[in-house]
């Protein structure tokens, strides 16, 4: 039985800050919405401050902004080619939003928006929706070549490749959203659990013995925290990278 206040799931609970209704739909402003607004505001503030001077020889903040820009631009160029750069603002927004949301979630008592499957699934559906809409708009029926790759015998295609391609295409939004969500969710549970163990041990065995015993979960928490920061970055990166790969399908459905 977990003591009250140490429940690792409690951190994912949503509560309404302002009740809102759009017709019959409940669109209340919650702690999650507050974090989303805060994330966007923080990104805006960061970019505002770092691009204010627009110096020829960049300062530290401007360098970071420019490095982020080049990082995403290079990622798109290497995975989706030069014409993939038309999606640059989208991929950049996606990456930076997820990265900031993940990192802000690492601050104690801050809600992690990306730890809810519906949020990551909405992101994934935005990506897949964009791939399908742009792919069909640009290539028409040629978009279906995605499931009909060149250079494979027709029999093999019908029996094996095309069904696999269809399954892989349909599972993309699920894998994309579950990967991000599960990483953030599990990481926060682990951190909360180990941090909670310290308090439980102290309260069970007293300050001295409990304190000694608490060194084990303490060292685990200490080790997990940088790992979680890394995960926060890597998951944002993976999400953006896979977005580029999928967008590349929309741009060049014939060859992948």
């Amino acid at each position: 039985m977990i003591a009250a206040g140490l429940d690792p799931i409690a951190q994912f609970e949503l509560h309404k800050i302002q009740e809102l209704k759009l017709g019959p739909i409940d669109i209340s402003f919650t702690n999650s919405s507050l974090m989303m607004v805060f994330t966007v505001a923080l990104i805006g503030l960061w970019l505002l401050l770092s691009t204010r001077k627009a110096a020829l020889v960049p300062g530290r903040a401007q360098s970071i902004a420019e490095m982020s820009y080049e990082f995403i631009a290079d990622m798109i160029r290497s995975t989706a080619g030069k014409d993939g750069l038309r999606f640059f603002p989208f991929v950049f927004s996606l990456f930076i939003f997820i990265l900031f949301a993940n990192l802000l979630g690492m601050i104690p008592f801050f809600f992690t928006t990306t730890s809810h499957i519906i949020v990551t699934f909405t992101f994934a559906m935005m990506v897949i929706g964009l791939v399908v809409v742009y792919g069909v708009w640009k290539n028409g029926f040629g978009f279906l070549k995605l499931f009909w790759p060149a250079g494979v015998p027709a029999v093999l295609k019908i029996l094996l490749v095309t069904p696999l391609e269809i399954i892989s295409f349909l599972s993309r939004p699920i894998s994309l959203s579950v990967r991000l969500w599960a990483n953030m969710f599990a990481g926060h549970i682990l951190l909360k659990l180990f941090a909670g163990f310290m308090i439980m041990m102290v309260s069970a065995f007293g300050v001295f013995k409990g304190g000694l015993a608490a060194l084990i979960p303490f060292s685990l928490t200490l080790a997990l925290t940088p790992l979680e920061f890394l995960v926060a970055f890597v998951q944002a990166y993976v999400f953006a990278l896979l977005t580029c790969v999928y967008l590349s399908d929309a741009l060049h459905p014939g060859h992948h």
Partner: peptide
């Protein structure tokens, strides 16, 4: 809270996208 989260995500993401692009 699914509708609320989708709604606020779309709103904030659109604001971010607009601001960045």
């Amino acid at each position: 809270y699914f509708p609320s989260q989708i709604f606020w995500l779309l709103v904030t993401f659109f604001v971010l996208y607009f601001m960045l692009s």
